[in-house]
Nucleic acid binder design. Structure first.
Length: 476
RNA sequence: GGCGACGUAGCCAAGCGGUAAGGCAGAAGUCUGCAAAACUUCUAUGCGCCAGUUCAAAUCUGGCCGUCGCCUCCA
């Protein structure tokens, strides 16, 4: 039984799907106007872990992740407020339109998603391809009398949605009191949010624009998720995930729009990923302290070590990202893979090794951990205990073919979650006949030196073999 | 200023009222000529600080200190 922390109620709750055996999950996806960094991907890896674990538990999961490709670009002022001007440079240098740029960064994003072995979602709907659905939703909101028109757009009147603030813990009064946002004379409340923006004022030259009953313009920031989640997953979602920074105002506003338009509860379980931090500062595009997947791979870190680092940190605690953590993750991955090799190659005896029982109890511990709000630390601890127990059986010559099958089967099953284990039996490297002869000669020489206790020469040959890719492991 | 999360060994980290899991690093040992791998053992009288509740608190309550996030595009 999965228990998960619901950001809305601020409690761990037992997960009950809307429909038995099925799970509908929506993840706030990337904004494709610049490079996604590993902080961004940590949120998607959290969703990946959740989806994979739900599948492990036998649920049929339908996962939707949106692509935010509606920007707020103007002809002469690209991305001026994002603090990231690489795109502007790229746009000019490559003479690309905003549409081409959106596709370009979307492609990069999808490539990194594959690199990190994040499960493909059922669909990645693009905001620009769902303008009609968004317009329809604004119409419904208009019919219900919760939006009003100003000179520059259509706004949602948050006073019409008393629960506004429930997710972030804000109350309408507190919001007013602590207001720091720019005052817009036309808005009834500083926190009323746009569902449709007109091409006036600073948005006069907006490149992305569509016709609507309110004139040409573009949709408000929060509308796409409400419209697309409804289209692909229905009116009530099981899970909605995203970064904690999306709680307010984005998710808060989604709730207001969706619940008003549909007259139903929008999301049963809100899951928010804590920020990734670098030297105690959030990793963000605007601070420029970010690493991209490609940066790290270029530095020699494996994609698996990136994946494992973010998956093995609990999603509700801040992760202080360092390169040392990637190294440690790699060691852990190697430890598991070394174990898989040892199991694969272990000599079997006919003994009744009792391993299937160990596998069973480990599986129970593993699930107990993940069932408790994806407590990955507990799940991993069960695995470390497991490999120690199995190695002990192997070392004491108490290992059967059945035991091997049981261990490998289990590792393969949990690898559907981790995706970093390697089951290929490490064969002797293939050498040409000539090389093989040289190697055999060197080994023979070294053994001769060893017999003569000429350790200096023996070690020299060992180094030489290592350079050729031959690893010597002496046994007694 | 408002809202929220969090503070456990050198580092990462579990723990959710019954007396500190696990991983990395470190130390000693088994094996080995040495090394690598593996295995064994050890490494927090204490969980930011101060009060309180309780037979019992890292775990509950209150206050304080500190860190971070959101309130503005951001996973």
């Amino acid at each position: 039984m999965l228990r998960i922390y619901n950001s809305l109620t601020k409690k761990k709750e037992v997960f009950k799907p809307v429909e038995d055996g099925k799970v509908r999950i929506y993840t706030c996806g990337p904004t494709v106007y610049s490079n996604a960094h590993v902080g961004n991907f940590s949120a998607f890896l959290m969703a990946d872990l959740l989806v994979r674990y739900l599948r492990y538990k036998g649920f049929e999961v339908k996962w939707i992740m949106n692509i935010t490709d509606v920007g707020h670009l103007t002809d002469d002022n690209e991305l001026s407020d994002s603090g990231e001007d690489k795109m502007e440079a790229a746009s000019k240098r490559e003479n690309k339109t905003v549409w081409e740029i959106a596709r370009y960064y979307e492609d990069l994003f999808m490539k990194d998603m594959r690199t990190l072995k994040i499960l493909p979602a059922f669909k990645y709907p693009r905001a620009t391809e769902h303008i009609q659905e968004m317009i329809e939703m604004v119409k419904v909101l208009e019919e219900k009398g919760v939006v009003y028109e100003t000179s520059d757009g259509i706004y949602f009147d948050i006073s019409k949605f008393p629960k506004y603030g429930e997710l972030s813990g804000n109350t309408l009064d507190a919001l007013q009191a602590g207001a720091r946002v720019e005052v817009n004379e036309d808005k009834r409340s500083a926190f009323d949010f746009a569902v449709w923006k007109k091409l006036v004022g600073k948005n006069e030259a907006h490149i992305m624009k569509w016709d609507s009953p309110w004139g040409p313009g573009f949709p408000g920031w929060h509308l796409e998720c409400s419209a697309m989640s409804k289209k692909y997953l229905g009116e009530t979602l099981d899970f909605h995930t995203g970064g904690e920074d999306n709680k307010f105002p984005h998710h808060e506003s989604e709730i207001a729009q969706s619940e008003t338009a549909n007259g139903k509860k929008f999301v049963n379980y809100w899951i928010h990923k804590s920020r990734v931090v670098v030297n105690s500062e959030k990793m963000s595009k605007s601070l420029g302290n970010f690493f991209t997947v490609q940066d790290l791979i270029a530095k020699g870190f494996s994609a698996d070590s990136i994946r494992f680092t973010f998956i093995s940190a609990h999603y509700r605690s801040k992760l202080n990202f360092t390169e040392d953590q990637l190294i440690e993750s790699q060691k852990t991955i190697d430890k598991f893979n070394g174990f898989i090799q040892a199991v694969t190659k272990a000599d079997v005896t006919q003994a009744d090794d009792g391993i299937p029982e160990v596998v069973k109890s480990t599986g129970q511990q593993f699930e107990k951990g993940l069932d408790d709000d994806l407590n990955i630390s507990m799940a991993l601890a069960s695995l470390f205990g497991f490999i120690k127990a199995v190695r002990k059986k192997i070392d004491s010559g108490n290992f059967s073919e059945e035991g091997r099958g049981s261990v490998i089967g289990f590792m393969k099953k949990i690898n559907e979650i981790f995706m970093v284990f390697d089951f290929d039996e490490k064969k002797e490297k293939e050498f040409t006949a000539d090389d093989q002869k040289v190697i055999n000669d060197l080994i023979e020489q070294r053994n001769k030196f060893r017999t003569e206790k000429n350790w200096a020469e023996a070690d020299r040959i060992r180094d030489e073999l290592l350079k050729m890719g031959v690893n010597i492991a002496d046994k007694k």
